[in-house]
Every structure is written in C-alpha cells, then in structure tokens.
Design a protein around this nucleic acid. Structure first.
Lengths: 236, 236
DNA sequence: GTGTGTATCAACCAGAAGGTTGATACCGAG
DNA sequence: CTCGGTATCAACCTTCTGGTTGATACACAC
C-alpha cells in the first residue's frame, strides 16, 4: 500500500510517556501498561505504571502468546479505539480460558480498558488500563471519559505528523461520495482558483461550476469554498 | 523587527476546540469558556460550551473590566497553570465584590477552575470551567485531574510548535513580514472562516479585517482568501 | 516633534460567490 | 420505458469579498 513503512513520528517515545501520565492521572486505573507497534506489527517499547514487574515478565514469557485480546487483533481493526475487556470476552470465557483463569484473575484484575492510537489507519500505540477487583466496576461514564481522552491523544498525535495531502483529498471525496466532476471541482478549489478559472479549466460554464459547488456544499455540509480548502488541509 | 513578541502558533484555533472537548468531556463542568491571548495581552477568540449567550454578553460588556481574576492577571504570572476561584478569592470578597455578587452568583456558579497554556512563558490560551451550585464542591482529586489534563495539553501544544505545518505557517508569515495581527487573520482565514466571523473572533470591525486582508494581499501577492490557504499548505 | 508602522474604522463600488428555480440531455438499472 | 443520478446551462437575487480612499489613534524611533 505505502511506498515506505510507517515510521514512528519523532517524539512518539515521549508522547507515549505523556499519554500514560494523562490516562493514569485522570482515570482510576490500579495499574497500566503501554506499548508501541513496530513495522512487523509487534508490540515493543513497553512502559508500565504501578504494574508488578513479575506480572509483566509473566505476561511476556508465558501469556502473551495466548492473549485473546493481543494487540495484533486490533492492527487491522480500524474501528477499535477504546475497548473494554468485559465487553469483548464473555464471562464464560473469562472463567475457562487459561489466560484469564491463570493470569488475569490471579493478579487481581477485574477488567481492562485498552486504547489504540493509529496513524493512517495503522496501529502505532496501545494503552491498557487495569481495574482491580477492589475497585468499582467501569461505568459507561468512565468509558466515555476514556473516549474523550483518546480523541485528544489521537488529535495530538496527528498534529505532529505530516499527513500526505493526497490521502486527505481522497478521504474527503470518498467520505461524501462526490462524483468525478465534483472531485475535479474540489481539486481546483483547493488550488485557490476563482470559479471563472475553474469553469474554463473544465471547459464548462460558470453556471455549471456553481451547480457543482451547490451539490458539494450540500453533500459535505460545508458553506464556502474557503471552508473546503481548510477541511482538506486541517484534520477535524 | 517585531517578530520577537509574536508567538501566536499556527493551529491554535483548532487546538482550542480540541482542548475544550477534552476538558468538558472529562471534568464535570456545567459550562465552560475559553479564549486565546493576543499580543496586546487581550483575550480574543472566545469559545463557549453550554454557557448562556446572555451570560457571555454580560461578561464582555459589563463585568470583564472588573473581573478580579481577569486573564491579564496571569499573563506575567508564570507559575499559574491551574487555578481555582475559591482558593484565590476569599468568601468575604465573593460576598461583597460586585463581580461575584452581581454576576457570578446570580448565574448559579459556585466555583471556577481556570487553566492556562503558555508558550515561552507567555500566556496564549485560557480555559474556564464553571461549577454550578447544584454540583458537588471541587475536590483536591478533581483539581489533580485538571492538572494532569493541563500537563498533557501543554505538552501537546509544545509538540505542535515544531511541526512542519507550523513551520510552513511561520515561513509564510515571516517571508512576507506579516504583523502579529495579520498573522492571526491568516490563521483564521486558513480555518475557512468568513470575514464577519474573523472580525467577531478578533473583536474588531469587518472594515478592519478587510484592511488587514488588503495588506496581506499586497504583501504576499495573493488575490483571495482561498488562495492564502492553498499557499499555506501547498508548496508550488 | 516629526515620521514610520501598526491597528482601527467608515463609505463606496464592482464583481464574485452563494442560493434558488427550472430546464435539457445522457446513461444505466430496474 | 421509466426512474434516478449525473452533467450541463440560464436567470435571478442576496450576500460576501476585493479594491479604493481616507481618516484617527497609538506606539516607537530618530
């Protein structure tokens, strides 16, 4: 798909630390772990917070390979941003599966919330927040907060990246199901051209361009040409 | 010549939105307001969340000038990051001072938490979270969460200052020696805002914005707002 | 104190852009 | 063949933008 594999943006290592600080500071986890995803889609750069070194070692050595919610599960699952263990794994499975029976439960963990960060739809980092059995259950409200935190982390991450503008353009046009002609108009609008010039470029009348623009405005919910350009170059 | 005191970072306008979403999504404010600080140290670009328009208008017209915790108080106070109204203002003062007696209290506000973002020690943005009288008091725990959120927002802000996008903005503005106000206009133009909105954001008249635009057009050799945006993010 | 640069605003005009209605023509799916 | 989507264009009107002129006010520099 891409000519070059996605490389971590500079500062992702620091970024990971800051995210951990944010999540553990705002949400009520008893312990936490995070990792980056390398080009082979393997988790690396583990960082932990109040997580017993023995537990971490045990995970890496024995249980990682049978983890039903291993990060690799979510590499291609583009919708997964914030997930909750107890929503994905039935209580039956948690009772019988060795991963939960012999690892998660003995370490006093009641539930796990996991957040995923992506760049160009590729998973680059994950954060696992552990809820201990002594803590109250995770409410929908807590999950919403986690989603808000995730949204900002994702925004912050994207801010630091150079997103290829081609992708932005394609995404914009596909999102709103623009027709081929409408795409061409968007392309020329994004060059900052006035309607008259666009019309002559596409060998049609000014009226036609205006109609196309009306359709584009209607489909995209945008109100002006200027707004189109800003939509294309700013991630919202 | 004046580039030293210009610190307005590109993308701050969007950043402000995201911060508001984060704060209001994670903390339990009943309403919120935020603003950017221009180089005259005045708050501009107000954005509100569940705040009554009438209350905001009242503040701008009558109470801003007697606000004991007006942002200008914190412009030079480098240590202030997260402050709580009830910690800074005695209950006596809250009882007698017209700002609290005639404005804060009548609008049902019990307390305010304010967060400040800085670049190079200079205040660039502020966020005020209003706690209503129906809500529980702010605990130390809540304040710590606010501090964690602040820490990440500050980190994220600093990250955006070294991005290619920001550099392009800086390069564009420096190349053509735009003045601080002109830079702000460029920033808002690049968000796709119509002149009327830009004027209200910078609280000046439409005429002033047009004049600024004329100067920008003259200096940069550009002919329209749309072209500015495409120039900013397209190298050609 | 005069001058230069910045920021502010008003009035005016022409032209561009946005919004609406309506119309024609082509094409492909049902 | 009819219907829906696309592409085309015209006429009309309102609002916004761009361009100009001119003016005031406040800095800071020389």
């Amino acid at each position: 798909m891409k000519s070059t594999d996605t490389i971590y943006p500079a500062g992702l290592y620091n970024f990971q630390d800051e995210c951990m600080g944010l999540l553990t500071g705002v949400l009520n986890a008893s312990k936490a772990a995070s990792y980056l995803i390398d080009n082979q889609k393997k988790p690396i750069c583990y960082k932990t917070w109040q997580l017993q070194p023995a537990m971490h070692r045990e995970y890496l050595e024995k249980f990682q390979k049978i983890d039903p919610l291993h990060p690799t599960q979510f590499v291609e699952n583009h919708d997964a941003t914030v997930v909750k263990m107890n929503d994905l794994v039935s209580s039956q499975e948690r009772y019988s599966h060795p991963y939960y029976k012999d690892f998660i439960s003995p370490w006093g963990v009641q539930d796990i919330v996991e957040l995923f960060l992506r760049v160009d739809d590729k998973l680059v980092a994950g954060f696992a927040l552990f809820i201990s059995k002594q803590q109250p259950e995770i409410l929908l409200e807590d999950l919403r907060k986690a989603e808000k935190l995730h949204k900002f982390m994702q925004f912050s991450l994207e801010q630091t990246l150079v997103t290829p503008k081609h992708n932005q353009f394609e995404e914009f046009c596909n999102n709103f199901q623009l027709t081929p002609k409408e795409r061409m108009v968007v392309e020329l609008v994004s060059q900052g051209l006035p309607n008259k010039t666009i019309a002559s470029n596409l060998h049609c009348s000014l009226a036609t361009i205006k109609t196309h623009l009306q359709h584009i405005f209607y489909k995209t919910g945008v109100n002006s040409k200027t707004e189109i350009t800003s939509q294309l170059y700013n991630q919202h």
